[in-house]
Each structure stands twice: as structure tokens, then as C-alpha cells.
């Protein structure tokens, strides 16, 4: 049954009327019209729907909307600041880590959470940190390179 849900999305307080038994992914896309978050597999295997929920990178397809109540949520739409791309987004461009682009929002949100936990990951930690995301275009090397570029940018 639908109800009012209150939370912070991308730094902004929002109240919206939605079904708490729907997935967060569905609510983001179809109620809040935040289409940046993608649905890939819908079963938690591909990571395309990754968002940051209370500081944790999670698959929004495997989270019910009742858990949005009073939560702090970040999606890809919240990363740009004052017309500037986020350093991770900029790093994706510089490394050529994007082809079709479908997996990018999920990767970028996962990388954001990963670098908040561990600002200077080793190569192995980068690889391990991204095992929950699938890219069918790039072969991952460019994405790993993007993480390294983002680490340097964020250190500045």
C-alpha cells in the first residue's frame, strides 16, 4: 500500500508517495524519474543499479522502498557539482572507460563508495572491489585505469 516516504536524495530532502513494497530501483526511476540508475539483471549479479544508501554501495534492485525512509541516498545524478563532473566521472572520460555507457552509473557509484572506504586502493583491491559490477564492452582495464586516475584527482 502506498504511503509517504521521506528521505534525502542527492543532498535534497524529498517526500514522495510510493509503494514501500516496490524496489528502490523502481521508485527511483518511475516515481522520482531519476533514470540514471539502470536495471541490468534484476537479481543482484550485474551491479548496474548500484546506488549509495546510508554510505553503502548496494544494488537498488535488491532493496525495498521501505528502507528509503529517513535514508541518505546518492545516485549518479547527484555527483555533478556546480556544473563540473565528479572526479570519478571525469576519470572515466579520460581513461575511455565507457562505450555503451549502460554500466557506468553503477560502476561509478560503487567506485565512489569504495574510495570513501579506502582512498588509495592497490591494484588487487580495485579488482576485488569491482567484482559485483559487469561491463560487457570495455574488458575492465580502462575502468581500473579510471579508478587510478580518480584516486590521483581526489588526492589533489
Amino acid at each position: 500500500m502506498k504511503r509517504d516516504i521521506k528521505c534525502t536524495i542527492n543532498g535534497r530532502q524529498r517526500t514522495f508517495y510510493a509503494d514501500p513494497c516496490a524496489s528502490v530501483l523502481d521508485v527511483l526511476r518511475d516515481v522520482l524519474h531519476l533514470m540514471g540508475t539502470k536495471e541490468g539483471c534484476g537479481t543482484g549479479d550485474c551491479g548496474a543499479c548500484t546506488i549509495i544508501w546510508n554510505g553503502k554501495a548496494v544494488n537498488s534492485c535488491l532493496l525495498l522502498a521501505n528502507r528509503m525512509e529517513n535514508a541518505e541516498i546518492w545516485t549518479i545524478e547527484g555527483l555533478m557539482k556546480d556544473g563540473e563532473l565528479h572526479p570519478i566521472q571525469q576519470a572515466f572520460i579520460e581513461a575511455g572507460a565507457t562505450q555503451c555507457g549502460f554500466c557506468n552509473p553503477g560502476f561509478i557509484m560503487r567506485i565512489k563508495a569504495m574510495l570513501e572506504e579506502n582512498p588509495d586502493p592497490t591494484d588487487e583491491e580495485i579488482t576485488q572491489g569491482l567484482v559485483g559490477n559487469i561491463c560487457r564492452c570495455t574488458g575492465y582495464k580502462a575502468i581500473r585505469d579510471a579508478v587510478k586516475i580518480a584516486v590521483k584527482k581526489q588526492r589533489r
Binding site: 543482484g44 553503502k56 548496494v58 535488491l62 567484482v131 559485483g132
Partner: peptide
Amino acid sequence: LGGPQTIEL
């Protein structure tokens, strides 16, 4: 147990 996103939940 699973990928990082699964382990969180």
C-alpha cells in the same frame, strides 16, 4: 559470500 554490494546487505 557475494560481491561487495551483496555483502553490505
